[in-house]
């Protein structure tokens, strides 16, 4: 459990730092990095980075959107279409980021295994 929490925090911190100078797919690098630093087991390999980035993207988009009364989020939630619900859009945003990170987590774990074993 301690490992999971540590991995989770490292993913978020790395993702946050990478985002300062790299495009959105840097969440994948963050997940690979975390996998190297703190190895995980079984399904957590995917789910911990998934949760980390899900949370980061969800909260970040909420933070950006809330200060503007969710005007754009409501419109994009019509476009996609998510019935105009800005929170659903934040969930989708989180899932997209989480998916990218989770899959990168799997790769990171495999890479670590090959190098270290």
């Amino acid at each position: 459990m301690r490992h999971n929490l540590l991995h989770f925090s490292i993913t978020i911190v790395l993702a946050f730092l990478f985002a300062l100078f790299l495009p959105w797919w840097s969440v994948m690098l963050a997940a690979i990095g975390a996998a190297f630093l703190v190895p995980l087991k079984k399904a957590t390999v995917f789910f911990i980075p998934f949760l980390g980035i899900f949370l980061l993207w969800f909260l970040w988009s909420y933070y950006l959107s809330a200060s503007n009364n969710f005007i754009m989020a409501k419109r994009i939630a019509v476009l996609l279409p998510l019935e105009g619900n800005p929170y659903l859009l934040m969930v989708v945003t989180g899932i997209i980021g989480g998916l990218a990170a989770g899959i990168a987590g799997i790769f990171g774990t495999q890479l670590r295994r090959l190098i270290k074993e």
Binding site: V27, W60, L64, S65, I71, I76, V92, I96, G97
Partner: peptide
């Protein structure tokens, strides 16, 4: 990261750093 037909590149489009959230 790429566009499929009229579907925008969804990761690029929705990520909070450079996507539509920056247009809020």
């Amino acid at each position: 990261n790429v566009k499929f037909g009229s579907v925008p590149p969804i990761g690029k489009f929705l990520n909070p750093y450079t996507g539509i959230w920056q247009n809020e």
